[in-house]
Design a protein around this nucleic acid. Structure first.
Length: 463
RNA sequence: UCCCCAAUAGCUCAGCUGGUAGAGCAAAUGACUGUUAAUCAUUGGGUCGCUGGUUCGAGUCCAGCUUGGGGAGCCA
């Protein structure tokens, strides 16, 4: 069997040579003496035109090929006399792996709506749009690791099954081997008897690796996680998933200002990696979905992120005289419309909001000396709002214990977490980036369900 | 979960003040010497989302439900 060449590897240097390609047909155009087949193998946006001459053996079978069929083409790469492509392949031999009956195959030689394609998530991957999205998603995943690896961060695999609810991170999926179809073992009080469950206690799918990864930061210094995350929230929006991937760096000997810088450097690195590698995919997405896509990405790479305290932001919003639906008031969480005003209109660049009121943030955030704010940080992007949330962590044992008591959280559940403050405590900070959010931003996709392979949302776990 | 909008052929849609179903594309068949989501001709294709109601008569009006979309909340 011949060595296969990927379409991405084709170049003018190969013109005149015999090559072997394998992939799926996007379009077929027949005329009396030959057929034009457009082949794509997933490695690039543009496919390649195959010329199948009627002189070929089995031409009758070849002429009956339809959109979606899988084939192998052996032939000579030649310069194309036609418009729209630099070269094409003059087929010498075409092997048919699998036909694709035209009367059934849902993908047509026409545009489909993203809503329709979501119903055929196993086949939408063969479209130009999803080719571009998933190639870019791959580059982003690679760039995440490159960024941290180049800076000496350790990649940590935190548990997916966990007993701890990282407070405030949302509703949990419970994991159990107790059968819902049979009578539950009950305690004397009539509650489920978890001593009979697999782990002997209630456990859940993780909503965040943060608490675990703090332990690693307090041993290895600079670490990060990148893994699946689960939220059982009944969120029905274009930017929430029940299962998604999250990146959480955690850095020891790091205060909030250093964390802000890390987040900005990180986001710029991710965006510029895509601009470098994906001009063709981005051009396609720009043409189809967002005329300003590349300009937006380039603008962010070259812009200075604006750091503003929550208190300053509230002042700006109150003086803006914008007709906001929700009033701006110190102590309340900012609404989407407020965040978007700051990043899109007031500053016109990414904004990092810091030092939020203590009462609207989580227990583990570092108390500021003013006694009413904590060293939290949210990075706001134009269009999508909050893309990163993070903070410096409370590293003072007494302060953290006090916070647990104030919020009525069980101190005994956090014993190991408090140990990190008890033994060799250091200032440390970290943030979380929802991976699909950045894929969404880079690709210009409006709905997060279109940037993950098989989306899991309330009421849907198909495929 | 809340608010708003929508659901008609495989896909995208039209269908007026209620009178019994249409187009383009796709598919199948044929034609065509270079096409680019090719072109031309022919053919087949519908429980008008579901349930009930109003009416002589409902794709059309009303109610409930289901599904999809947009926005909000929760957040990443």
């Amino acid at each position: 069997m011949s060595q296969r060449t990927r379409l991405a590897a084709l170049s003018s240097a190969l013109v005149g040579q015999e090559i072997c390609l394998r992939g799926w047909l996007r379009t077929v155009r027949n005329s009396k003496k030959f057929s034009f087949l457009n082949l794509n193998d997933g490695s690039t946006q543009s496919g390649i035109q195959i010329i199948a001459d009627a002189e070929l053996p089995d031409y009758e079978e070849i002429a009956k090929l339809t959109t979606g069929s899988a084939v192998e083409v052996i032939g000579q790469l030649v310069e194309s006399p036609g418009k729209g492509q630099a070269f094409e392949v003059q087929a010498q031999q075409i092997r048919i792996y699998g036909r694709s009956p035209g009367e059934d195959y849902p993908l047509q030689k026409k545009g489909h709506t993203l809503e329709f394609l979501r119903e055929i998530a196993h086949l939408r991957l063969r479209t130009n749009t999803f080719g571009a999205v998933f190639r870019i998603r791959n580059t982003l995943a690679d760039a995440v690791h490159r960024f941290f690896q180049e800076r000496g961060f350790l990649y940590i695999h935190t548990p997916i099954i966990t007993a701890s609810d990282t407070e405030g991170a949302g509703a949990l999926f419970q994991v159990t081997t107790l059968s819902l179809d049979q009578r539950l073992p009950l305690t004397a009080q009539g509650k489920p008897d978890y001593s009979a469950d697999f782990f002997g206690r209630p456990v859940f799918l993780t909503v965040s690796g943060q608490l675990n990864v703090e332990a690693f930061a307090c041993s290895f210094g600079d670490v990060y996680t990148f893994g699946p995350t689960f939220r059982a929230e009944n969120s029905n929006t274009s930017r929430h998933l029940a299962e998604f991937w999250m990146i959480e760096p955690e850095v020891a000997f790091c205060e909030l200002s250093d964390l802000v810088q890390l987040a900005a450097d990180f986001l710029k690195f991710l965006l510029s990696s895509c601009l470098e590698r994906h001009s063709e995919d981005l051009a396609f997405l720009q043409k189809m979905y967002d005329p300003e896509l590349c300009a937006t990405l380039e603008h962010i790479v070259s812009s200075e992120f604006q750091t503003v305290s929550y208190t300053e932001a509230v002042d700006i919003l109150q003086q803006s005289e914008q007709p906001f639906e929700f009033a701006v008031e110190w102590g309340a969480d900012l609404q989407s419309e407020h965040e978007r005003y700051l990043t899109e209109q007031h500053y016109g660049c990414p904004v990092v909001l810091i030092d939020y009121p203590r009462d609207i943030k989580s227990f583990y955030m570092k108390q500021n000396p003013d006694d009413r704010t904590v060293a939290a940080m949210d990075v706001l992007f134009p269009r999508i709002g909050e893309i990163i949330g993070g903070s410096q962590r409370e590293d003072n044992l007494e302060q953290l214990q006090k916070r647990l008591r104030e919020l009525d959280l069980p101190e005994e559940e956090y014993g190991w977490y408090l140990d990190l403050r008890r033994y060799g405590s250091v200032p440390h900070s970290g943030f979380g980036l929802g991976f699909e959010r950045i894929v969404q931003f880079v690709t210009g996709m409006k709905n997060i369900r279109d940037v993950i392979p098989f989306p899991r949302v309330p009421g849907h776990a198909d495929f």
